[in-house]
C-alpha cells in the first residue's frame, strides 16, 4: 500500500464479523482427488524399499546411476539400461533445519531435512530424507550417514520405510 494512504475508507472485517450471521460469505471445498500412477521405475523403487533395499537405474551411455530410478536418462535422452542396487550409506550433500511444519506451525523439535549422496550412485544423485539420532550442532555438509530402516513387518513400500539417516559412528 502506498505510504500516502493514511486512512482506509470502508469497514474493516474481523474474524468475528466473518463468522457472524450478518455478513455474506461462501464456503467451498474442492473435490480434487487423484491416484497417481507410480510407473515402472518408481513401482520397482517402492517395492524394493519394502524389501529394505535401495534400487537405481544405470545409463550405460553417461555411466550414471539414477536414484530414485528412472526409465530414461534425462541427459542422454535414451532408455536406461539396468537395475543397480545401492547401499544405504552416503554423505550429506546439503541440509536444512526446519522450524515450521507443513501447516506453518512453529515446532519445538525441528525437522532435519537433507539430500544424501548415496555411495554407489553418481555424484549429484541423491535421496531426499530426514536426519535423526544426530546432534544438531554436529551436522555438516559431507557428513557420512546411513539409512535406519523400519522393521521389515512395518515397511509398506514408501520412502518412509527408511525412518531417517543417522551419522555413521567413527570406529
Amino acid at each position: 500500500m502506498s505510504e500516502k494512504v493514511k486512512d482506509l475508507r470502508g469497514t474493516r472485517l474481523s474474524a468475528a464479523d466473518l463468522e457472524s450471521k450478518d455478513t455474506i460469505t461462501f464456503r467451498g471445498r474442492p473435490n480434487a482427488k487423484y491416484a497417481w500412477s507410480a510407473g515402472i521405475a518408481y513401482t520397482k523403487y517402492l517395492e524394493e524399499l519394502k524389501n529394505g533395499r535401495i534400487v537405481g537405474r544405470r545409463c550405460r551411455q553417461c555411466d550414471r546411476v539414477l536414484v530414485p530410478p528412472r526409465m530414461f536418462c534425462e541427459q542422454c535422452f535414451r532408455a536406461t539400461d539396468e537395475w543397480v542396487y545401492i547401499k544405504g550409506t552416503g554423505k550429506i550433500n546439503t541440509y536444512s533445519i526446519s522450524y515450521l511444519d507443513a501447516d506453518a506451525n512453529r515446532i519445538k523439535t525441528p525437522i532435519l531435512v537433507a539430500v544424501v549422496d548415496l555411495d554407489g550412485a553418481s555424484p549429484g544423485i541423491g535421496i531426499l530424507h530426514k536426519l535423526g539420532n544426530v546432534d544438531i550442532e554436529k551436522i555438516h555438509v559431507g557428513m557420512p550417514v546411513q539409512a535406519v530402516w523400519k522393521p521389515a513387518n512395518e515397511r509398506k513400500g514408501s520412502v518412509t520405510d527408511i525412518l531417517y539417516f543417522e551419522p555413521i559412528k567413527e570406529k
Binding site: 461462501f26 467451498g28 474442492p30 473435490n31 480434487a32 482427488k33 487423484y34 491416484a35 497417481w36 500412477s37
Partner: peptide
Amino acid sequence: KASDILTFPGIVTHGLDPI
C-alpha cells in the same frame, strides 16, 4: 492421464463461478 483423476466432476465443477 485422466485415469489418475478420481473426482473428475469435482475438477470440472471448480471451473464454475464459485459465487
